[in-house]
Structures are given as C-alpha cells and as structure tokens.
C-alpha cells in the first residue's frame, strides 16, 4: 500500500512541476507584446548574450583549431586533406556549434539566471512585485526568456564562424592545406538551408529548453540558500542532459534519413 502511494505521490509531484513550468512559460510568452519590456529584454541580452561572448569565441576558436589538427593527421594519410574544410565546417554547423554553445550557455548564463531569480524569490522581491501589482512573469521572467531565445542562435552562429576561421588558421596557415581547396570544397559541400539553417533551428530548440529550465528552476526554487544552490546545480545538470538527448533526436530527424 505504502509502495503504491509513494509512486502516486511522486507522479503527482512530477506532473504538477511540469504543469507549473508550462504555466510559467505560458505567462512569459503571453507577455511578448508589451512594448516597454523591450528595453528590459535588451538589458538581458547584454547580461545573457554579450557577457557569454568571450567564452563562446575562445572555445569556438580552440575547438575549430583542434578539429583541424586532428582531422589533418587522419586525412593526410589518404591524401584527402582538401576535405579538411568541409569536415570542420559541417561538424561545427551541424553539431558542435549548437551543442557546445548550449552547454556553455547553460553553465555560463543558465546558472546565473537560476541563481538570480532564486535569490529574488528568497529575498521576497517577487512577492513584493506582486504586492505592487507588477506581474513578475512579465517583468522578470519574460525578458530573460526572450533574451535567451535571441542570444543562443546568435552565439551559435558566431561559434561556428569563429571555429571555421580557427580551422583555417591551423589547417591552412600552419599545416599547409591549400587555402583554395579549404574554402571551395567547403563551399560545394555545405548547403545553406540544409546545414546552416538546421543548425539555427537546433540552437533555437536548445535555447528554449535551456532558458526554460534555468528560469523555472529559479522561479520554483525553495527560497533558502540551500534550495538555491540545489536549483542552480539542477539547472546545469538537467539542461546539459536535455541538450544532449534532444540533439540526438533532432539530428535523427534532420540528417538521419535521406
């Protein structure tokens, strides 16, 4: 009896968490048309996007460089080092760009969002907003959500572009792959709508998942110092797992079956 009751209680708790998350997202999404929120959103794009720019550019550069280095050592055995360009470009645009950006974003911006909103809740800023008839969903949650949705695809595009340039630096300038074949074979292999746009769609999905989890974990956290630290950890763990799992599903849908 006790066993079934505990299963039931856990299921109900999970369902009500999912329901609260959906309600919060709905409340935040309804708040789009408010014009005065635009400046709040720009402020959040600065916090979430611009401040993540450095880590994104540096990791993009190094990932592109290391891929060129690894790819070259294998491809040169087959005399196919001309294919280094498409290899670097395709793996960045299709996979590494969106995924690594989402993981870095979850660590850099997602955890900060959770901690910020959780602390707002703990210091009762959210309830005092409600007392002043200001909807915290509109004032706090919506700008952060939209900032995440805007920033992530932009960051992923910058990541891929910087990575391709990093691959060029190592492949062409250092290892001596012909610059013409690096770009031209890349150009004839990469397709704008299939590769680049699918990467952007991927990073939009990841942006939705990561910012949603981050904001909800903060909004739903237990308002104690322990609760906030737990919520922050859960944000990073859950959104990283969700990104990696969803990436497989999206890849299977986009590139799996021709």
């Amino acid at each position: 009896m006790k066993f079934f009751q505990s299963i039931g209680a856990k299921t109900l708790a999970k369902l009500s968490t999912a329901g609260r998350a959906a309600l919060m997202l709905f409340g935040a999404l309804v708040a789009v048309p408010k014009f005065k929120n635009v400046s709040l959103t720009i402020r959040q794009v600065y916090v979430v996007g611009v401040q993540s720019l450095l880590i994104i550019i540096v990791s993009g550069l190094f990932i592109g460089m290391v891929m060129a280095l690894q790819g070259y050592t294998i491809l040169v055995d087959y005399g196919a080092e001309g294919s280094l360009g498409p290899m670097v470009a395709l793996s960045l645009l299709r996979e590494l760009g969106p995924v690594v950006t989402a993981l870095l974003f979850a660590g850099r911006a997602g955890s900060a969002l959770t901690a910020e909103i959780g602390l707002m809740k703990a210091t009762e800023q959210l309830s005092s907003m409600e007392m002043m008839a200001v909807d915290p969903l509109r004032r706090v949650v919506a700008p952060r959500f939209w900032a995440g949705m805007i920033s992530m695809p932009m960051l992923a595009l910058i990541f891929s572009a910087v990575g391709i340039l990093g691959g060029h630096m190592v492949g062409v300038d250092w290892l001596g792959v012909d610059a013409g074949s690096y770009w031209s074979i890349m150009q004839s292999t990469v397709e704008w709508d299939k590769d680049v746009l699918n990467g952007v769609i991927k990073s939009l999905v990841f942006a939705l998942v990561v910012t949603w989890i981050a904001i909800f974990k903060g909004y739903d956290s237990i308002p104690t110092s322990e609760g906030i630290s737990k919520a922050t950890t859960e944000t990073v763990v859950f959104s990283s797992l969700a990104v990696l799992g969803l990436d497989f599903v999206l890849t299977a849908l986009m590139f799996g079956i021709e």
Partner: peptide, 24 residues
C-alpha cells in the same frame, strides 16, 4: 555592447553565407 553583439552575428552570418555555404 548589444549592438556590437548583433554586428558580430551579422558578420558570422555573412561569412557562413558567402564563404562557407554554396549560394542557393
């Protein structure tokens, strides 16, 4: 800074569109 961010993104898109992807 947000403006710089946007310009960087546009630069990335241009690089991807003109140098990386084949023109549709």
């Amino acid at each position: 800074m947000v403006g710089v961010f946007v310009v960087l993104t546009i630069g990335a898109i241009l690089l991807l569109a003109l140098k990386v992807a084949n023109q549709t």
